[in-house]
Design a binder for these strands. Structure first.
Length: 674
RNA sequence: GGCCCCGUCGUCUAGAGGCCUAGGACGCCGCCCUCUCAAGGCGGUAACGCCGGUUCGAAUCCGGUCGGGGCUACCA
């Protein structure tokens, strides 16, 4: 045992003793049964979702018992502290509502950052040293490595104990020499553990646990050449949780094996033992087996994943609570959030984090929200993670609200098409002209291989007779489909596929694709109403007729697939197209970005204006290319390049709407798989 | 290697010796509804890791084994 003078010479003379801290952090005087819990993350990067899980349990237990919840930052390993971690923590705490109780954010039993508590730890280390319950260890890192190697070779337990603990009982003389030589030292705990002795404790979740006692003289204060002088986790845990008057330590099961050490530390320090609850870690399916969800390998392990995708916090919380207590998973969300979590009901096997299930919960949750609430949340999310979206939503809140109201407001089973805010752009983006890319190719695969000719016919027919406010809106499509020879129902088509080009399903798919860019969408009448007649006609009329001239551009075009020989009507259509080609005004394409007119450069597609007679362009002649060739023979004003005819069906003047000239940016991406 | 924790459908789980032919939820599959997709309705698929023991009787108790995870740091 070292002399008191020698021990004291190692510490600042004005360092207070343990009584000082005991007075400074007095017992709380909380009523019987009130639990004080703490969440203690280490600021080594983004918070782990398991941290949110633990913190949520901590907070819930504290509050439901009338106790207190605090957050203590465990940054005793300064080398691993990440810049910006504090900000990320703050964001995560705010998002998931797991910040410390108000009076435990500052002051009170703080500071709540371990690197700021050096004095406290030093007091207790000195005390242990004075009592001979700890000692100085001058082993270098290299020596430690060699020791471990020898232990391994000898088949002995690694660690600092027994014959391997060379500094445990070193005479004061030698210690003084080392000190005089300026050698750095660590402080080790003199473990009272005996070989063969077993200890047991009662875990609040697992019941009684028994294991070998600790015999390792664990380091409690890191090397003297580090600044600030900080303790290891074990020592900080004992000192902090005692002084902060924590009653229940909830932590990951990886700490179970350290409990014997912790119990020894509490006893040596003269602290009453503390209760523990070791929770199973969140796991991840990896191939055939499962492993702990790892922040390094699994993006979904990080809270940033949930925040950046805009998972609604209450849904995530609900999911996590259900994992903690199965009972809560079968309750409606508001009730489950209010019910207390019970440690005794927690599973001991690590649950697999199931993103599919989370999605399902999120969809259910979002379905309970009003369009207005969703818009507010999406907008708030977008401001940070999708500025383009935020801008568009700010510019057209009414459109957004109309879109969100579809099959959501005033229905018994709201549409469950949104799981997280990042889904919004995929699911509702097409409503916004800025995000919608017009479908111009009648041979577009989204039409499902339907004859391009027919696609054009459907579009033209629809646009030509469009009645936006028709009571039987869908009847318009039904009539047009019948007129063009589509089967009245999928069933009828299946019975005799040869008799029809397709069914009403295919016909409406044409309008659906034109309107939404996808083969699936909410009900067409509702979509059309939200869009407004001008936008509907703009989209339906976007289909182009492409013609290649000889020697040019042989990519497959709609024209290539035209059916059998010309009839009267088809020839009339052709003439109309050609008439359009001579329209001097339209021969000068508009510069889309500036809205200016300028002469068409050689090879520029020539637009064909809408003409009343071209309603049924879908019925154009098959050898169209040939006819065009003939008609253009000898003309010098038309360049032998692909000609693009755009048969906009008769539009009411001004019906093109305000967005007609806006370039589309980006199409409608595929929906995320469920 | 040593010590510790854990093991029921794909997933989360209910299950305290007979109420278990193992229940629910999510997923998945099928059907219905239907202009598509969701949603919804109906139905289906699917598990006690394995081997012994105790017992009239075992998912449940015991032993072993196998598998998964953790600790074995001057990381937390």
């Amino acid at each position: 045992m070292l002399s008191r003078d020698l021990v004291d010479s190692l510490f600042p003379p004005d360092l207070p003793g343990p009584q000082h801290w005991e007075r400074r952090y007095p017992p709380r005087g909380l009523p019987e049964g009130a639990e004080v819990t703490r969440f203690s993350p280490s600021p080594t990067g983004f918070l782990h979702i398991g941290g949110v899980y633990t913190a949520m349990i901590d907070k819930d237990i504290a509050h439901h018992s009338g106790g207190r919840y605090l957050v203590r930052v465990e940054d005793t390993d300064q080398a691993r502290v990440t810049a910006g971690a504090a900000e990320q923590f703050a964001e995560a705490f705010g998002y998931f509502g797991i910040g410390p109780d108000k009076d435990h954010a500052t002051g009170g039993y703080g500071p709540y950052t371990q690197s700021a508590r050096e004095q406290v730890y030093l007091s207790y280390v000195r005390e242990l040293l004075r009592q001979g319950k700890a000692y100085l260890d001058f082993e270098t890192q290299q020596e430690a490595g060699e020791r471990t190697a020898r232990q391994r070779a000898a088949g002995a337990l690694p660690g600092y104990y027994g014959q391997w603990a060379v500094w445990r009982d070193a005479p004061q003389q030698r210690v003084a020499e080392q000190l005089a030589a300026g050698r750095p030292y660590a402080v080790r705990f003199r473990s009272p553990g005996l070989a063969g002795r077993r200890v047991s404790f009662t875990d609040a979740i697992r019941g009684e646990l028994t294991m070998e006692d600790n015999r390792n003289d664990a380091v409690i204060l890191k090397r003297s050449d580090t600044r600030p002088r900080l303790p290891t986790y074990h020592f900080a845990h004992a000192v902090d949780d005692h002084l902060m008057r924590v009653t229940l330590v909830i932590r990951g099961e990886e700490w179970i094996s350290s409990v014997p050490l912790h119990l020894q530390l509490f006893a040596a320090l003269g602290f009453p033992p503390i209760r523990y609850a070791h929770i199973a870690p969140l796991m991840k399916q990896a191939g055939g087996s499962r492993r702990k969800l790892s922040k390094r390998h699994d993006p979904e392990a990080s809270v940033s994943f949930y925040i950046a995708h805009g998972y609604p916090a209450p849904a995530v919380e609900y999911y996590l609570r259900g994992l903690a207590n199965g009972r809560l998973a079968e309750m409606p969300l508001p009730q489950a959030l209010a019910e207390p979590i019970r440690l005794s009901e927690m599973g001991t096997a690590g649950p697999l984090a199931d993103l599919v299930k989370l999605d399902d919960i999120c969809a259910d949750y979002v379905a309970t929200l009003s369009g207005r609430t969703i818009l507010a949340d999406v907008t708030a999310w977008a401001r940070r993670y999708d500025p383009d979206l935020a801008r568009v939503l700010d510019a057209e809140p009414d459109l957004a609200l109309r879109a969100l109201a579809i099959e959501r407001e005033g229905v018994a089973n709201p549409r469950k098409d949104l799981r997280k805010w990042a889904d919004f752009r995929n699911v509702y983006g097409y409503f916004f002209p800025e995000f919608f890319q017009l479908v111009t190719d009648p041979a577009d695969p989204r039409f499902g291989g339907l004859d391009p000719d027919l696609v054009r016919a459907v579009a033209a027919e629809f646009a030509g007779n469009y009645q936006p406010t028709a009571e039987d809106w869908f009847g318009q499509i039904r009539r047009l489909a019948a007129e063009l020879g589509f089967a009245p129902s999928g069933k009828a088509y299946k019975q005799d596929p040869a008799a029809y080009p397709g069914s009403i399903v295919e016909a409406s798919a044409v309008i659906r694709v034109l309107l939404t860019g996808a083969r699936d969408s909410p009900g067409l009448p509702a979509v059309a109403a939200a869009l407004g007649p001008g936008e509907v006609l703009r989209r339906v009329g976007a289909l182009r007729l492409r013609v290649s001239l000889p020697g040019e551009d042989h990519r497959p075009h709609a024209v290539d697939g035209l059916g059998p020989g010309p009839g009267q009507q088809r020839l009339r259509g052709l003439r109309a197209v050609l008439a359009g080609l001579r329209n001097p005004c339209r021969d000068e394409p508009r510069d889309q970005r500036r809205g200016e007119r300028r002469p068409a450069p050689p090879g520029h597609p020539i637009e064909v204006p809408p003409r009343a007679g071209v309603r049924r362009l879908g019925a154009l002649v098959p050898p169209l290319r040939e006819r065009v060739d003939q008609s253009l023979a000898g003309r010098e004003d038309v360049h032998p390049r692909p000609v693009v005819a755009e048969p906009c069906p008769a539009l009411p003047v001004g019906a093109e709407g305000a967005h007609a000239d806006r370039p589309g940016i980006g199409g409608r991406p595929e929906r995320a798989p469920r």
